[in-house]
């Protein structure tokens, strides 16, 4: 794709073109691309088995053989980080899909559907919002028991109200547009209008909101793992790695720095890309 100012043929091409010319999009996109590549090809990229214990080489500093050193039972930190990208990607996708799909459907029905549905759904969302998100998440985990799956579901549920509110308000605006009336006059059913007309018109705010929500969700999931409520050791999940290494902070700082910096870089990448997306899709905030 050349940088020439050619007329983009589709909206997607236009968005990609604008992103290509945005510095923070390039940096953020680069970080995310590396993470995705690592996740896709982890077994081939990683120099060691991430689970292989070597008690003779515990807490070794970075070396030619162990690029980032080893942890308290002699596992290769670099390999564990690379495999950890899979958890990161999985967490981002699952939490966002749960929150995004359920929240969007609820918001659409609420904003563009019958009034009674709006009342019921919004009261439900109000109840969810009444709890601090972390308390809500802890409650879900308390019910389902601590595991990575539970943590993802819990964080997903915790993010439903945000999506529902956003989509509802966007749908309320779109519903009054003349083209919705026109679609109705042309024989579109109410369901057809909600999913065929309203939904495509709120994609921009949805993408923008997701760019806020996804890194926060990933961070929340990592925090849960750190608290022992998410991914369980020995899984090479970054938050879980962090909690194990924490006791050796003064003797083996690299064991803490590696997962900590990985989380930092990944969240930074998501945020940079999200900022750029926001600039491109939502010119009002620019």
């Amino acid at each position: 794709m050349s940088a020439a100012a050619s007329l983009p043929t589709s909206r997607l091409a236009w968005v990609l073109d604008r992103l290509w010319h945005n510095r923070s999009a390039r940096i953020g996109g680069g970080i995310i691309a590396i993470i995705l590549l690592c996740a896709a090809f982890a077994p081939w990229i990683a120099p060691h088995d991430p689970m292989a214990i070597d008690t003779l080489r515990r807490l070794e500093p970075p070396s030619a053989e162990h690029w980032l050193g080893t942890d308290e039972v002699g596992r290769d930190l670099a390999s564990r980080l690379i495999h950890g990208t899979r958890y990161f990607v999985l967490i981002c996708l699952i939490t966002t899909v749960i929150a995004g799909v359920i929240g969007t459907v609820l918001g659409l029905i609420s904003g563009a559907g019958p009034l009674i549905a709006d009342a019921v759904i919004m009261r439900f969302v109000d109840v969810l919002l009444a709890f601090p998100t972390i308390l809500l998440v802890l409650a879900v985990i308390a019910i389902l028991g601590p595991s990575l799956t539970t943590a993802m579901v819990a964080v997903g549920i915790g993010n439903i109200p945000g999506y529902a509110r956003l989509v509802r308000s966007a749908a309320l605006t779109i519903r009054r547009e003349e083209y919705v009336e026109a679609a109705r006059a042309l024989g579109a059913s109410e369901l057809g209008i909600i999913f065929g007309t309203v939904l495509p018109n709120i994609v921009s705010p949805l993408v923008v909101y997701t760019s806020y929500a996804m890194p926060l969700a990933a961070l929340a999931a990592a925090a849960l793992s750190f608290l022992g409520l998410g991914a369980q050791p020995p899984a090479p999940e970054w938050g879980a790695m962090l909690v194990n290494a924490r006791s050796f902070l003064f003797t083996a700082w690299w064991a803490v720095a590696a997962p900590g910096l990985a989380i930092f870089a990944a969240i930074l990448g998501l945020n940079l890309l999200g900022n750029a997306l926001r600039d491109v899709l939502d010119p009002r905030d620019a």
């Binding site: 547009e177 083209y179 026109a182 109705r184 006059a185 042309l186 024989g187 007309t197 495509p200």
Partner: peptide, 21 residues
């Protein structure tokens, strides 16, 4: 079913009557 098939309608503001996306 009647709308669109039996009766059609066009409006005053053609540009806002078309779905922009």
């Amino acid at each position: 079913r009647l709308r669109g098939r039996g009766m059609g309608m066009i409006f005053q503001q053609p540009r806002t009557s078309l779905d922009p996306v």
